[in-house]
Protein backbone atom coordinates (compact mmCIF):
# COMPACT_ATOMS: atom_id res chain seq x y z
CA UNK A 1 0.00 0.00 0.00
CA UNK A 2 1.33 3.40 -0.84
CA UNK A 3 1.57 6.27 1.55
CA UNK A 4 -1.29 8.01 -0.23
CA UNK A 5 -3.57 5.04 0.30
CA UNK A 6 -2.81 5.20 3.97
CA UNK A 7 -3.92 8.74 4.28
CA UNK A 8 -7.05 8.00 2.26
CA UNK A 9 -7.95 5.17 4.61
CA UNK A 10 -7.25 7.35 7.59
CA UNK A 11 -9.62 10.04 6.34
CA UNK A 12 -12.29 7.47 5.63
CA UNK A 13 -12.10 6.25 9.21
CA UNK A 14 -12.34 9.80 10.50
CA UNK A 15 -15.49 10.33 8.43
CA UNK A 16 -17.09 7.22 9.86
CA UNK A 17 -16.47 8.56 13.33
CA UNK A 18 -18.03 11.91 12.53
CA UNK A 19 -21.28 10.37 11.22
CA UNK A 20 -22.39 9.01 14.56
CA UNK A 21 -22.35 12.16 16.64
CA UNK A 22 -26.09 12.95 16.81
CA UNK A 23 -27.53 9.69 18.03
CA UNK A 24 -27.05 7.58 21.12
CA UNK A 25 -23.67 5.96 20.82
CA UNK A 26 -22.91 2.28 21.11
CA UNK A 27 -19.92 1.16 23.16
CA UNK A 28 -17.98 0.62 19.97
CA UNK A 29 -18.70 4.11 18.84
CA UNK A 30 -17.81 5.57 22.21
CA UNK A 31 -14.51 3.75 21.94
CA UNK A 32 -14.01 5.32 18.56
CA UNK A 33 -14.27 8.79 20.09
CA UNK A 34 -12.61 8.30 23.45
CA UNK A 35 -9.56 6.38 24.51
CA UNK A 36 -8.47 5.49 27.97
CA UNK A 37 -4.85 5.85 28.98
CA UNK A 38 -3.35 2.49 29.98
CA UNK A 39 -1.10 4.24 32.41
CA UNK A 40 -3.16 6.90 34.27
CA UNK A 41 -6.67 5.76 33.21
CA UNK A 42 -7.56 9.26 32.00
CA UNK A 43 -10.30 9.37 29.36
CA UNK A 44 -8.94 11.22 26.39
CA UNK A 45 -10.55 12.43 23.16
CA UNK A 46 -9.23 10.36 20.29
CA UNK A 47 -8.89 13.35 18.00
CA UNK A 48 -6.76 15.27 20.48
CA UNK A 49 -4.65 12.18 21.04
CA UNK A 50 -4.01 11.98 17.33
CA UNK A 51 -2.91 15.61 17.41
CA UNK A 52 -0.64 14.89 20.31
CA UNK A 53 0.99 11.98 18.45
CA UNK A 54 -0.75 9.41 20.69
CA UNK A 55 0.96 10.68 23.81
CA UNK A 56 -1.30 10.98 26.88
CA UNK A 57 -1.97 14.63 27.70
CA UNK A 58 -2.20 13.82 31.39
CA UNK A 59 0.79 11.59 32.07
CA UNK A 60 2.93 11.60 28.90
CA UNK A 61 2.41 7.87 28.43
CA UNK A 62 3.36 6.99 24.85
CA UNK A 63 0.74 4.77 23.26
CA UNK A 64 2.09 2.06 20.99
CA UNK A 65 1.65 3.16 17.40
CA UNK A 66 1.77 1.32 14.11
CA UNK A 67 3.61 2.06 10.89
CA UNK A 68 0.91 4.26 9.36
CA UNK A 69 0.66 6.52 12.44
CA UNK A 70 4.43 6.71 12.57
CA UNK A 71 4.63 7.72 8.94
CA UNK A 72 1.92 10.30 9.42
CA UNK A 73 3.84 11.79 12.34
CA UNK A 74 7.21 11.82 10.62
CA UNK A 75 6.06 13.07 7.23
CA UNK A 76 4.38 16.20 8.51
CA UNK A 77 5.97 18.81 6.23
CA UNK A 78 4.35 19.46 2.91
CA UNK A 79 7.23 18.36 0.68
CA UNK A 80 8.17 15.28 2.66
CA UNK A 81 8.20 12.15 0.52
CA UNK A 82 8.27 8.43 1.05
CA UNK A 83 8.80 5.90 -1.73
CA UNK A 84 7.88 2.50 -0.46
CA UNK A 85 9.90 -0.58 -1.35
CA UNK A 86 8.62 -4.13 -1.56
CA UNK A 87 5.11 -3.17 -0.49
CA UNK A 88 3.70 -6.33 -2.03
CA UNK A 89 6.10 -8.79 -0.50
CA UNK A 90 4.13 -11.12 1.73
CA UNK A 91 4.77 -14.23 3.79
CA UNK A 92 4.88 -17.76 2.44
CA UNK A 93 4.23 -20.81 4.58
CA UNK A 94 7.47 -22.77 4.20
CA UNK A 95 6.75 -25.11 7.14
CA UNK A 96 3.02 -25.52 6.41
CA UNK A 97 2.74 -24.61 10.04
CA UNK A 98 -0.38 -25.16 12.08
CA UNK A 99 -0.73 -24.64 15.78
CA UNK A 100 -4.20 -23.90 17.09
CA UNK A 101 -4.70 -22.17 13.71
CA UNK A 102 -2.99 -22.58 10.36
CA UNK A 103 -0.28 -19.96 9.76
CA UNK A 104 -2.08 -19.01 6.54
CA UNK A 105 -5.15 -18.11 8.56
CA UNK A 106 -3.08 -16.04 10.97
CA UNK A 107 -1.61 -14.17 8.01
CA UNK A 108 -5.09 -13.22 6.83
CA UNK A 109 -6.03 -12.02 10.31
CA UNK A 110 -2.82 -10.04 10.67
CA UNK A 111 -3.34 -8.43 7.32
CA UNK A 112 -6.80 -7.17 8.16
CA UNK A 113 -5.78 -6.08 11.66
CA UNK A 114 -2.77 -4.06 10.50
CA UNK A 115 -3.74 -3.09 6.96
CA UNK A 116 -0.29 -4.29 5.96
CA UNK A 117 1.13 -7.19 4.00
CA UNK A 118 3.85 -7.79 6.56
CA UNK A 119 5.27 -6.56 9.85
CA UNK A 120 7.61 -3.96 8.40
CA UNK A 121 7.24 -1.04 6.00
CA UNK A 122 10.39 0.02 4.18
CA UNK A 123 11.23 2.79 1.79
CA UNK A 124 13.25 5.86 0.97
CA UNK A 125 12.33 8.94 2.96
CA UNK A 126 12.98 12.59 2.44
CA UNK A 127 12.20 14.85 5.37
CA UNK A 128 12.42 18.62 5.37
CA UNK A 129 13.72 20.55 8.29
CA UNK A 130 11.12 22.78 9.91
CA UNK A 131 12.01 26.37 9.15
CA UNK A 132 12.46 28.29 12.37
CA UNK A 133 11.15 31.85 12.11
CA UNK A 134 14.30 33.94 12.28
CA UNK A 135 14.17 37.65 11.41
CA UNK A 136 17.94 38.08 11.03
CA UNK A 137 18.16 35.38 8.42
CA UNK A 138 15.13 36.56 6.49
CA UNK A 139 17.07 37.34 3.34
CA UNK A 140 19.61 34.47 3.44
CA UNK A 141 18.85 31.94 0.73
CA UNK A 142 17.67 28.51 1.92
CA UNK A 143 20.61 26.19 2.54
CA UNK A 144 21.02 23.07 0.47
CA UNK A 145 20.82 20.81 3.51
CA UNK A 146 17.27 21.74 4.39
CA UNK A 147 16.15 18.16 3.73
CA UNK A 148 17.60 14.78 4.67
CA UNK A 149 17.18 11.63 2.62
CA UNK A 150 17.49 8.28 4.28
CA UNK A 151 16.42 4.67 4.10
CA UNK A 152 13.59 4.03 6.54
CA UNK A 153 12.12 0.87 8.01
CA UNK A 154 9.18 0.85 10.41
CA UNK A 155 7.92 -2.27 12.14
CA UNK A 156 4.28 -2.70 13.06
CA UNK A 157 3.29 -4.68 16.13
CA UNK A 158 -0.24 -5.20 14.83
CA UNK A 159 1.04 -7.63 12.22
CA UNK A 160 1.56 -10.82 14.27
CA UNK A 161 3.23 -8.98 17.12
CA UNK A 162 5.75 -7.38 14.80
CA UNK A 163 7.43 -10.75 14.59
CA UNK A 164 10.40 -11.16 12.28
CA UNK A 165 9.96 -13.83 9.64
CA UNK A 166 11.54 -14.16 6.21
CA UNK A 167 9.78 -11.11 4.80
CA UNK A 168 10.86 -8.75 7.57
CA UNK A 169 14.44 -9.98 7.21
CA UNK A 170 14.36 -9.71 3.43
CA UNK A 171 12.74 -6.26 3.30
CA UNK A 172 15.19 -4.82 5.80
CA UNK A 173 18.13 -6.42 4.01
CA UNK A 174 17.00 -4.98 0.67
CA UNK A 175 16.59 -1.61 2.35
CA UNK A 176 20.11 -1.73 3.79
CA UNK A 177 21.51 -2.82 0.41
CA UNK A 178 19.78 0.16 -1.15
CA UNK A 179 21.28 2.43 1.52
CA UNK A 180 24.69 0.96 0.67
CA UNK A 181 24.34 1.63 -3.03
CA UNK A 182 23.16 5.22 -2.64
CA UNK A 183 25.13 6.21 0.47
CA UNK A 184 21.97 6.73 2.46
CA UNK A 185 21.79 6.74 6.23
CA UNK A 186 19.52 4.01 7.60
CA UNK A 187 16.84 4.43 10.25
CA UNK A 188 14.84 1.48 11.59
CA UNK A 189 11.97 1.76 14.05
CA UNK A 190 11.64 -1.55 15.86
CA UNK A 191 8.51 -2.87 17.50
CA UNK A 192 8.52 -6.61 17.79
CA UNK A 193 7.92 -9.56 20.03
CA UNK A 194 10.87 -11.34 18.40
CA UNK A 195 11.38 -13.97 15.74
CA UNK A 196 8.29 -15.50 14.12
CA UNK A 197 7.84 -19.06 15.36
CA UNK A 198 5.65 -20.09 12.42
CA UNK A 199 8.64 -19.87 10.09
CA UNK A 200 10.91 -21.79 12.43
CA UNK A 201 14.65 -21.64 11.93
CA UNK A 202 14.18 -19.60 8.76
CA UNK A 203 13.03 -16.77 11.04
CA UNK A 204 16.02 -17.23 13.31
CA UNK A 205 18.37 -16.88 10.35
CA UNK A 206 16.90 -13.48 9.49
CA UNK A 207 18.80 -12.21 12.52
CA UNK A 208 22.01 -13.21 10.77
CA UNK A 209 20.87 -11.91 7.40
CA UNK A 210 20.14 -8.44 8.79
CA UNK A 211 23.27 -8.53 10.95
CA UNK A 212 25.55 -9.34 8.02
CA UNK A 213 24.18 -6.58 5.81
CA UNK A 214 24.69 -4.16 8.70
CA UNK A 215 28.32 -5.29 8.80
CA UNK A 216 28.59 -4.02 5.23
CA UNK A 217 26.94 -0.74 6.14
CA UNK A 218 29.37 -0.40 9.03
CA UNK A 219 32.36 -1.04 6.76
CA UNK A 220 31.05 1.53 4.29
CA UNK A 221 31.00 4.17 7.02
CA UNK A 222 27.27 4.78 6.74
CA UNK A 223 25.15 5.91 9.66
CA UNK A 224 22.57 3.54 11.10
CA UNK A 225 20.16 4.84 13.72
CA UNK A 226 18.10 2.25 15.54
CA UNK A 227 14.94 3.52 17.20
CA UNK A 228 13.53 1.09 19.73
CA UNK A 229 9.84 1.55 20.36
CA UNK A 230 7.20 -0.18 22.45
CA UNK A 231 7.84 -3.12 22.61
CA UNK A 232 11.11 -4.53 21.23
CA UNK A 233 12.14 -8.02 22.31
CA UNK A 234 13.88 -11.27 21.40
CA UNK A 235 15.36 -11.72 17.96
CA UNK A 236 15.01 -8.06 17.01
CA UNK A 237 16.81 -6.89 20.15
CA UNK A 238 19.48 -9.50 19.48
CA UNK A 239 20.07 -8.41 15.90
CA UNK A 240 19.49 -5.12 14.04
CA UNK A 241 17.73 -3.50 17.02
CA UNK A 242 20.92 -3.08 19.00
CA UNK A 243 23.37 -2.63 16.13
CA UNK A 244 22.75 1.07 15.62
CA UNK A 245 25.66 3.50 15.61
CA UNK A 246 23.18 5.47 17.64
CA UNK A 247 20.43 3.69 19.56
CA UNK A 248 17.42 5.79 20.50
CA UNK A 249 14.65 4.48 22.70
CA UNK A 250 11.24 6.05 22.65
CA UNK A 251 10.12 7.22 26.08
CA UNK A 252 8.56 4.47 28.14
CA UNK A 253 9.19 1.72 25.57
CA UNK A 254 9.83 -1.75 26.96
CA UNK A 255 12.93 -3.28 25.48
CA UNK A 256 14.68 -6.53 26.25
CA UNK A 257 15.90 -9.89 25.07
CA UNK A 258 14.02 -12.34 27.29
CA UNK A 259 10.48 -11.64 28.42
CA UNK A 260 9.87 -10.37 31.94
CA UNK A 261 7.84 -13.43 32.96
CA UNK A 262 10.49 -15.85 31.72
CA UNK A 263 13.16 -14.04 33.71
CA UNK A 264 11.03 -13.94 36.86
CA UNK A 265 10.37 -17.67 36.56
CA UNK A 266 14.06 -18.37 36.02
CA UNK A 267 15.51 -16.29 38.82
CA UNK A 268 12.50 -16.72 41.17
CA UNK A 269 12.58 -13.09 42.07
CA UNK A 270 10.33 -10.09 41.44
CA UNK A 271 11.82 -7.62 39.00
CA UNK A 272 11.72 -3.86 39.57
CA UNK A 273 8.71 -2.10 38.04
CA UNK A 274 10.78 -0.11 35.60
CA UNK A 275 12.87 -3.14 34.53
CA UNK A 276 13.41 -3.23 30.74
CA UNK A 277 12.00 0.26 30.19
CA UNK A 278 13.80 2.80 28.02
CA UNK A 279 14.97 4.79 31.04
CA UNK A 280 16.19 1.68 32.85
CA UNK A 281 18.20 0.64 29.81
CA UNK A 282 19.80 4.06 29.47
CA UNK A 283 20.82 3.88 33.11
CA UNK A 284 22.60 0.61 32.31
CA UNK A 285 24.30 2.02 29.24
CA UNK A 286 22.32 0.05 26.67
CA UNK A 287 20.84 2.95 24.69
CA UNK A 288 22.23 6.37 23.80
CA UNK A 289 19.13 8.42 24.42
CA UNK A 290 15.57 8.21 25.59
CA UNK A 291 13.53 10.42 23.29
CA UNK A 292 10.07 11.90 23.70
CA UNK A 293 7.91 11.21 20.66
CA UNK A 294 7.44 14.93 20.05
CA UNK A 295 11.20 15.38 19.65
CA UNK A 296 11.90 12.26 17.64
CA UNK A 297 11.68 13.74 14.16
CA UNK A 298 13.90 16.65 15.10
CA UNK A 299 16.51 14.48 16.81
CA UNK A 300 16.66 12.11 13.85
CA UNK A 301 17.20 14.97 11.42
CA UNK A 302 19.85 16.53 13.62
CA UNK A 303 21.74 13.27 14.03
CA UNK A 304 21.63 12.62 10.30
CA UNK A 305 22.77 16.16 9.51
CA UNK A 306 25.69 16.11 11.95
CA UNK A 307 26.97 12.76 10.75
CA UNK A 308 26.50 13.75 7.11
CA UNK A 309 28.59 16.86 7.59
CA UNK A 310 31.40 15.15 9.48
CA UNK A 311 31.60 11.96 7.39
CA UNK A 312 31.26 13.77 4.08
CA UNK A 313 28.85 11.04 2.92
CA UNK A 314 26.17 12.76 0.89
CA UNK A 315 23.37 10.55 -0.44
CA UNK A 316 23.49 9.99 -4.19
CA UNK A 317 20.43 10.98 -6.14
CA UNK A 318 18.18 8.00 -6.71
CA UNK A 319 15.22 7.81 -9.03
CA UNK A 320 12.09 5.75 -8.50
CA UNK A 321 13.13 3.62 -11.45
CA UNK A 322 16.49 2.78 -9.92
CA UNK A 323 14.75 1.69 -6.75
CA UNK A 324 13.09 -1.12 -8.68
CA UNK A 325 16.41 -2.96 -8.41
CA UNK A 326 15.63 -3.47 -4.76
CA UNK A 327 12.22 -4.99 -5.31
CA UNK A 328 12.28 -8.71 -4.60
CA UNK A 329 10.97 -11.17 -7.16
CA UNK A 330 10.39 -14.23 -5.09
CA UNK A 331 10.94 -17.57 -6.71
CA UNK A 332 8.81 -20.47 -5.54
CA UNK A 333 10.29 -21.97 -2.43
CA UNK A 334 11.75 -25.41 -3.03
CA UNK A 335 12.20 -27.97 -0.33
CA UNK A 336 14.99 -29.74 -2.15
CA UNK A 337 18.40 -29.48 -0.57
CA UNK A 338 21.26 -28.68 -2.89
CA UNK A 339 23.76 -29.38 -0.15
CA UNK A 340 25.18 -32.87 0.14
CA UNK A 341 25.69 -34.46 3.52
CA UNK A 342 29.28 -34.52 4.68
CA UNK A 343 30.61 -37.96 3.86
CA UNK A 344 32.05 -39.60 6.93
Amino acid sequence: MSLRDWFAKKKQKARLNADGVNRKLTDDELCSIWVQCYSCNATLPRKAMEHNQQVCMECEYHFRIGASDRIQQLFCQEDDTFIELNANLGPADPLTFTDTQPYRKRQVGARSKSDLNEAVVTGIAKLHRMQEPNDDAADTPPTIDEAESFALGIMDFDYLGGSMGSVVGEKLTCLAECALKYDLPLVIFSSSGGARMQEGTLSLMQMVKTGTVLARLHDAGLLYISVLTEPTFGGVTASFGTLGDVILAEKGARIGFAGRRVIEQTIRQKLPNDFQTAGYLMKYGQVDRVVHRHNLRHELLELIRLHRISSGKTPKAVSQGQLLDFEVNPSPFLLTPDAEPVPV
Binding site: M1, N88, G90, P91, E170, E199, M205, K209, P330
Partner: peptide
Protein backbone atom coordinates in the same frame (compact mmCIF):
# COMPACT_ATOMS: atom_id res chain seq x y z
CA UNK B 1 22.60 -16.14 4.71
CA UNK B 2 21.40 -13.70 2.05
CA UNK B 3 19.44 -16.46 0.36
CA UNK B 4 17.73 -17.92 3.40
CA UNK B 5 14.00 -17.23 3.55
CA UNK B 6 10.67 -17.79 1.83
CA UNK B 7 8.24 -15.18 0.55
CA UNK B 8 5.48 -14.51 -1.94
CA UNK B 9 4.04 -11.58 -3.79
CA UNK B 10 0.73 -10.42 -2.40
CA UNK B 11 -1.81 -8.86 -4.75
CA UNK B 12 -1.88 -5.12 -4.45
Amino acid sequence: YRHIGAYELVDA
